[in-house]
Nucleic acid binder design. Structure first.
Length: 539
DNA sequence: TAATGGTTGATGTC
DNA sequence: GACATCAACCATTA
């Protein structure tokens, strides 16, 4: 209540001690701090109807990563004289109850641009303000405040990376030291009748024991984030010469990137601290790469997408999204399922989808391959469907970045060269001619000779037999022929682009239906008639 | 209005 | 390994 004297520190992302302005503010000038995390059952508890182990919203790997992060945060808070209070329930209800029952005069939490948090935070903020509780909600998830960039650009987000760079410049805090140390946190106050629990284990949340092999090799938490950061930064040459597009997507033993994305997503690692560390490395080397390809460039891509997403209504949809091309995607659940379940019959694609299941992480270019294949490259399935699969299964899935990249890859926004299609055969081959990556994630193909491993359906039956993998029985035949499917996709994209141009982006449901019908008719003309029908015609 | 440049394609030629 | 070709996109800038 307004008469309170303590602070409530509400953790959501930003699961860290270092560079955490909300926590710092909560700890200042007060004798009691309540560090709270709310477990939303919808996000955390098992949903037996979901297509993979996990909750309604998240796959088990990301839930595990989050639990690791919470346990690590709790342990760090304990070292500072505090602890993490875990409560279960619908977050706004839980928050409001805590504000009512506890001795709170300040409510502190990191500002969040995701629509989910915008709505939730407004509810909580309104309640707190009405109750006379001070609200402190700083921007610390990103380097910049997206609203500032949009304002600088006259109220509209920049739509190219280069335009973004010019507007953004150096972040305002770049030259002053960040507060990365916190010596203590005031003790927890009286929690009244609230049922506080420990950070649960997966088992306590109701998950079955899973085979260890099914879990991601990446552990969550700030400690692990900082360890990984230091490990990456220790190779100064590597940091200085980093060029993202030159990374090898098929590398699975020594990875081509830092794999700090999941830690940035949950805020186990501060993007600002990461930025400063990188700049420190640059200062001490003769030359270094630059955005967009450098490591700093990667952080700025994140900022770019955060800015556009924040300034674009319906950013996560095709309909009602002003920057999204309206394209007559199909709704083929069989093709979607084949892609999702790693049985497209293209080993390069399927291996990547297995890595997604098992690790919850793949190289950026591997993501490109499978996203292109599902949408504009081969299957012509709606990007929103692929987005949903990634959102669930990735440990680093971030609402803004995931949607931004699906818009990009499907040539719906940002990138428009739909003629450039990743080949599901030759793209992987150029990095990994022996197919080691495929053999690792698709062991059924481990004895397939390298001449056939990217196209096993072309292997003579004797070779298939010797490799103990009969195509069509042990491993599926291709769901589509890449040559014909990709040609058709290009044609459909061309038609859709022409329509968008003609109608100036205002494309109705009916327009899309017409376009779908039109291309179906053309298909029928070109496709050979089914054999029986043809025989009838011959008679 | 026209010119410019764009994180990461595939293929064939030299 | 570099380059042109494919076909011709877009947002931004001059």
């Amino acid at each position: 209540m307004s008469s309170g004297s303590g602070s409530l520190m509400w953790f959501r992302k930003g699961l860290r001690i270092h560079d955490n302005p909300a926590l710092e503010y909560a700890s200042r000038g007060t004798t009691r701090v309540y560090p709270l995390f709310v477990i939303d059952p919808h996000y955390m508890e098992p949903d037996p109807n979901a297509f993979s182990p996990g909750s309604t919203r998240a796959g088990i790997n990301r839930i595990r990563f989050l639990l690791d992060s919470l346990a690590d945060l709790d342990s760090s808070l304990k070292k500072l004289g505090s602890r993490l209070l875990v409560l279960k329930g619908e977050p706004s209800q839980v928050l409001i109850r805590c504000l009512n029952e506890w001795d709170v005069k300040k409510l502190c939490f990191e500002y969040d641009t995701d629509p989910y948090y915008q709505a939730l935070d407004n509810k909580v903020k309104n309640y707190a303000s009405a109750a006379g509780i001070e609200v402190f909600s700083p921007v610390s998830h990103t380097l910049f405040n997206p609203a500032d960039i949009i304002e600088k650009n006259g109220g509209r987000p920049p739509l190219t990376y280069q335009a973004f760079l010019k507007l953004a410049g150096e972040p305002s805090w770049a030259s002053s030291p960040l507060s990365v140390e916190l010596s203590s946190v005031p003790p927890v106050g009286d929690v009244g009748t609230c049922e506080i629990s420990q950070v649960p284990t997966l088992k306590e949340l109701g998950y079955e024991e899973e085979d260890q092999d099914e879990f991601t090799p990446f552990r969550g938490g700030e400690s692990e984030a900082l360890r990984r950061l230091r490990e990456s930064l220790s190779d100064k040459e590597w940091v200085a010469n980093f060029e993202k597009p030159k990374g090898d997507p098929s590398a699975y033993k020594k990875l081509a990137t830092t794999v700090l994305s999941p830690y940035l997503k949950f805020g186990c690692l501060s993007s600002r601290y990461f930025y400063q560390c990188l700049k420190d490395v640059y200062k001490n080397v003769k030359r270094h790469t630059s955005p967009p390809v450098s490591l700093v460039g990667q952080l700025l891509w994140r900022e770019f997408f955060y800015t556009v997403a924040f300034g674009t209504p319906n950013f996560d949809k095709m309909k009602g999204n002003k920057i999204c091309k309206q394209i007559p995607w199909n709704d083929d659940d069989k093709l979607l399922a084949a892609w999702r379940e790693a049985r497209t019959g293209y080993p390069w694609i399927d291996a990547i989808m297995v890595q997604l299941r098992k690790w919850g992480w793949m190289h950026h270019l591997a993501r490109h391959s499978v996203a292109c294949f599902l949408t504009r490259g081969d299957l012509f399935v709606h990007w929103e469907k692929g987005r949903d699969v990634f959102e669930r299964l990735l440990i680093d899935s971030d609402w803004t970045i995931n949607n931004g990249n699906w818009l990009w890859l499907s040539c719906s926004s940002f990138f428009y060269q739909y003629n450039r299609i990743y080949s599901p055969i030759s793209f992987g081959k150029k990095y990994d001619p022996n197919g080691n990556y495929i053999r690792h994630f698709l062991p059924i193909l481990k004895d397939m000779p390298k001449e056939y491993i990217y196209e096993p359906w072309t292997a003579p039956l004797s070779v298939q037999t010797k490799a103990k993998c009969i195509i069509g029985r042990d491993y599926p035949k291709p769901v589509v022929s890449h040559d014909t499917a990709s040609k058709e996709c290009k044609k459909k994209m061309g038609e859709a682009y022409a329509l968008n141009q003609r109608l100036n982006g205002v494309v109705s449901e009916e327009d899309l239906r017409k376009l779908r019908r039109k291309s179906d008719e053309v298909d029928e003309e070109q496709e050979p008639k089914p054999r029986r029908l043809r025989q009838k015609l011959i008679k």
